[in-house]
Amino acid sequence: MTTTSTVRHSLDDLLTQFINDLGATAAAGNIVLGDRLGLYRGLDEAGPLTSAELATYAGSSERYVREWLRGQAAGGLVSYEPETDQFWLTEPQALALADPNGLQLAGAFQLALACFADLPAIEDAFRTGKGFAWGEHHPDVFTGCERFYRPGYVANLVGEWIPAITGLDDRLTAGVTVADLGCGLGSSTRILAQTYPASKIVGFDNHPGSIELARRMTLEAGLADRCTYQVAPAQDLPGDGYGLVTTFDCLHDMGDPLGAARRVRDALAPEGVWMIVEPFAGTSVADNLTPVGRIYYSLSSFLCVPHALSEGAPDAWGNQAGEEPVADLVEQAGFGGFQRVAETPFNIVYEARP
């Protein structure tokens, strides 16, 4: 029997979580505004500042900035000194919110808000079971997603993940042809191109809008002579003889992952390797009932499952599928070797060899 004290304790816990969740939800738009208006950057470059000083520095209205700063300080995203009524960013706060080469956490909130913009369409998909393709989403989904994943790729791809696959760094340094499948806006493609100039890097994605943005960002980065892009679905990957094929956080989004895996197998050179990077997930639902799992399941219901269903998936994986379906897929596609080679709190990296 459940006692009154137990119910009260559970309700108190739930209300505490509710307050934290509602606070984060309400703050999301303010985080995106702070990013777009340069308010975090202003605090980092010129702080400590009063609201009037920051408003002048950033070219914004003082009354709005005053309210914004107080909400940010209440959430611990900026720091506050009561005696001077000034605000500033600590080094970790700046790394997370102001540094263009930092963690880019505002991008995650940009992605979440863009999901909310598609709420009517996703509600209809819930009711009908039909899909909603990636390219149908609000444009901030594409740019927010790129900002959400890029810091992890910057931190881990070259320094940790590639060295974890025996001989891969040497082969990329010597020069091979690489297919970056589901490249999106091309963050991973550009990292590979910048690091391995002797290799030919080609990014593929079935969303023309993402490929257009990838080309533009690559031109701005001065890497257009090192990597190119094509619109193509994974199961129709053009070319063959690839020394490396990569899929970064996208295999679970595909309507026909087995078709894609078989095409990758056929397109690889005999000594080639398929690097599969997927969101971190355990082997069971219970393993994934964590703060990270919560983020991923929530994004998956708006992004991953709808897109896979839009491509005809009979039962979409979702982004918390875990290792077992990946291993089964690789085996069914005819690969001779498969293993987990690396992981972070957000990703698991596998290698598959012909």
Rank of each mutant, 00 (worst) to 15 (best):
T218P: 00
L219T: 14
L219V: 14
E220Y: 06
E220M: 12
E220D: 15
A221V: 03
A221E: 11
G222R: 01
G222A: 02
G222L: 00
G222W: 07
L223T: 09
L223C: 09
L223N: 03
L223D: 05
L223V: 08
D225N: 13
D225L: 10
D225I: 10
R226S: 09
R226W: 07
R226K: 12
C227L: 10
C227K: 05
T228H: 13
T228N: 13
T228A: 15
T228G: 15
Y229E: 08
Q230M: 08
Q230K: 08
Q230L: 10
Q230H: 05
V231T: 07
V231S: 05
V231K: 00
A232W: 05
P233R: 04
P233D: 06
P233M: 04
P233V: 00
A234S: 14
Q235M: 15
Q235E: 15
Q235Y: 15
D236H: 15
D236A: 15
D236R: 14
L237W: 00
L237E: 04
L237V: 00
L237I: 00
L237S: 01
P238S: 01
P238Q: 03
G239E: 08
D240F: 04
G241E: 10
G241M: 09
G241H: 09
G241A: 11
Y242F: 14
Y242A: 04
G243F: 04
G243N: 01
G243L: 01
V245Y: 03
V245T: 04
T246W: 06
T246F: 01
T246D: 02
F248E: 12
D249F: 03
D249Y: 00
C250S: 13
C250P: 04
C250G: 09
L251Q: 08
L251T: 14
L251K: 09
H252M: 14
H252I: 12
H252R: 09
D253L: 14
M254K: 00
G255F: 05
G255Y: 07
D256M: 07
P257E: 07
L258G: 02
L258V: 03
A260R: 11
A261I: 12
A261E: 09
A261N: 12
R262Q: 13
V264R: 01
V264G: 05
R265N: 13
R265W: 02
R265M: 01
D266Q: 14
D266K: 14
A267G: 02
A269T: 05
A269V: 03
P270L: 06
P270I: 02
E271F: 12
G272H: 04
V273A: 12
V273N: 06
W274G: 06
M275E: 05
I276P: 09
I276N: 10
V277M: 07
V277H: 05
E278D: 09
P279Q: 07
F280V: 13
F280I: 12
A281T: 08
A281V: 11
A281Y: 11
G282W: 06
G282Q: 02
G282V: 04
T283D: 14
S284E: 10
S284I: 03
S284D: 11
S284G: 03
A286P: 05
A286E: 15
A286M: 12
A286F: 05
D287L: 02
D287K: 03
N288H: 03
N288R: 06
N288E: 11
L289Y: 09
L289C: 07
L289H: 00
T290I: 06
P291V: 11
P291Y: 05
P291M: 11
P291T: 10
P291D: 12
V292L: 14
G293N: 02
G293R: 00
R294G: 14
I295P: 01
